[in-house]
Design a protein around this nucleic acid. Sequence first.
RNA 1: GUGGGUGUAGCUCAGUUUGGUUAGAGCGCCAGGUUGUGGCCCUGGAGGUCGCGGGUUCGAAUCCCGUCAUCCACCCCA
Length: 422
Amino acid sequence: MIKSIKGTRDILPDEVGAWHRVEQAAHQLFSRYGYREIRTPIFEETQLFARGIGADTDIVAKEMYTFPDRDEEKTSLTLRPEATAGIVRAVIEHNLYQTDPALKVYALGPMFRRERPQKGRYRQFHQVDVEAFGMERPSIDVEIIQLALDYLRACGLTESQLILNSVGDAKCRPAYVETLRSALRAHKDRLCADCQRRTETNPLRVLDCKVPEDQAIIESLPKISDHLCAECRDHFAEVRRELGLLEIPYELSHRLVRGLDYYTRTTFEVTSAALGAQNSVLGGGRYDGLVRDLGGPDLSGIGFALGMERLVMLIPPGPQESRCDAFLAVLVPRAFDRALLIQHDLREAGVRVLVDHEARGLKSQMKKADKLGARYVAIMGEDELADDVWTVRDMTTSTQERVSDVKLAEYIEEKMRGRDAG
RNA sequence: GUGGGUGUAGCUCAGUUUGGUUAGAGCGCCAGGUUGUGGCCCUGGAGGUCGCGGGUUCGAAUCCCGUCAUCCACCCCA
């Protein structure tokens, strides 16, 4: 049997309702904040991600789905592992920053990373991505954070925690990284093997090491908050002041470092314990150098990405939804002809109507109508056919009455309207 | 890439320790109990290469080896 490939999965009809809820919440809420949807291709030139995300990151070094195009030059293509790079490319390519007075966009869609699958982690996964460009002031950081939290609440997620940090900028971070590295070298022998390696490759990552024996050392390391330059310190202070003003609770963590190279200043993450080890639902931050690094103008940016699989796992299940309003149950072939004619009238009137295509007994048709959540079942057998009427059963009250064939569509529409209004 | 758990009916699982008739249950599905009426109940039915391959044995779902899949964790990340 051919099965879906490792790390991919089918979102089956029973599950799709939850996906629709989070998608609709996104469209609705984001537009209230002035964000508009953008749709970029799911594959790009490999170069875009290598330059944008950082060639030394795990994503680029070993997790990308990269393949040659079928052209003479053998252009290298990559399925997007995240959304920001593609969006930035589009912003630059179409000069959006020159024409859009408030460049605020969001995107929904699949991303691809070749990682070992785990709880809430797939090789094809879906993200909601929100980005704002060209705004320097800390208030946009706060707006983005508020939007993220509003969105999670709109989706019905109640148990979550906001974690906040500042990772400095191109002026102050490199110096801090060196300070950190020196401090780590002093403890080298007592660190776990991974952290000894990270000390040289990416010292910031040592900060979120989970090995218990390393924790005491990590706590004693110099903190980025003490090494920010004046501008970064002021920026972060204002972000915190505004979060306080808006009464948005958060936990400060000098150990929150983001995985992608492009982040500057404000970084944040929302976690939920219900997700297991993959506890991050949403992560984001500012990336003031990225647009320029990708060949655009010196345009600041800030945004977040949210894992939709993880979100869907967390939100309360919706009610079992009815799949039809009216079910036409027929017992003789000529009645079936009437059903075929009338079902189209009903559908044009917006009524969800189904018939049984298997010509089974009435009991079995009733059963099916019930399972589909039909509110009304219109029955036509020999008796009704003779009088040119339907017996219409209201499945919630178990009452029924006879309605002439020509009036059936109108009758059900009427009933449906009455219910919707009531 | 590394470590561990689990693979038996459409789904959730029992049976594996101590090898032994036609491999079970619940749910779901189909039919009947009602000459033309759903839910609840009762009865019956369909549905299984016991992940796959090899080995041990008179005999393997059960023991051994290999392999694949899947889940969880590490690395890393949404």
